[in-house]
């Protein structure tokens, strides 16, 4: 298995607060990594750093062995290869669904309007949204919006997908439809890094689950191991709290 993404002692601070404190991780092609941990543990920041939405203070992030975290590097061509889906969808409210999906292929990849539309319709069909192509984001349910956001990201044919708590803003009954899409992506061999509070889902879909605490990966193991027999004391405490609150 070749390594798709490598994190090497990644550090990031916001002011005095250290959000990432030496994160090391190798992610293989087609591997699915789930980051778990309490709010503020650095899950989202880590994903934003990989997508270069935040710059890191120290360390390195390698994509196919190339350091993409070097300062002064043009981030745009790298972001094209890494798709990101956000907790609050971040859809463009002034564009209909199809335009949301086709904007970047047209403007960044230079596809013609027809080519982009074909690609957009195809994706929307795949995600069960073909009848909503002309709707505006505000007219859709949360689950539909999030699926549009995933389609928008997939339209760039990324090599890696970063999913940042993509079900946290959804009503419980809408979570399933979004997770179905993630399952399908895994089936297609997409390399994915996801931050999540859905322990059950992390357990089901991830090849490895990584527990983040105060900006450090304390434990990284296949789900059965991490959920079944967590080695680190902090992980045990965290999972116990999750169990106590009835979310596992």
């Amino acid at each position: 298995m070749n390594t798709k993404i490598s994190l090497r002692s990644v550090e990031k601070s916001f002011g005095d607060r250290k959000v990432l404190d030496g994160v090391d991780l190798d992610v293989a092609s087609s591997e699915v990594i789930a980051f778990i941990g309490s709010s503020g543990s650095g899950k989202s920041t880590l994903l934003r750093c990989i997508n270069l939405l935040e710059s890191i203070d120290d360390g390195a992030i390698l994509l196919d062995g190339v350091d993409i975290s070097l300062p002064g590097l043009d981030a745009d061509p790298i972001r094209r290869r890494i798709g990101m889906v956000f907790q609050n969808f971040n859809l463009f409210p002034h564009m209909n669904v199809l335009r949301n999906v086709t904007l970047a292929p047209r403007k960044v990849l230079g596809l013609s309007a027809d080519e982009a539309d074909d690609r957009g319709h195809e994706l929307l069909r795949r995600l069960g949204l073909h009848d909503r192509a002309g709707a505006y984001p505000d007219q859709l349910s949360g689950g539909q919006q999030q699926r549009v956001a995933i389609a928008r990201s997939l339209a760039m044919e990324p090599e890696v997908m970063l999913l940042d708590e993509i079900t946290s803003a959804l009503d419980p009954e809408l979570v399933g439809e979004v997770l179905d899409v993630v399952r399908e992506l895994k089936g297609n061999g997409m390399t994915m890094l996801l931050a999540t509070h859905e322990m059950g889902f992390a357990r089901e879909i991830a090849d490895r689950v990584c527990f983040l605490h105060q900006g450090q990966i304390l434990e990284c193991a296949p789900p059965n191991e991490l959920f079944g027999a967590p080695r680190n004391e902090r992980t045990q405490q965290f999972l116990q709290r999750v169990i106590d609150s009835g979310r596992l």
Binding site: N51, L53, D76, R80
Partner: peptide, 10 residues
């Protein structure tokens, strides 16, 4: 909104 757009490579 900017994050969404930039993440797509715009």
């Amino acid at each position: 909104q900017r994050a969404g757009a930039r993440s797509l490579g715009l």
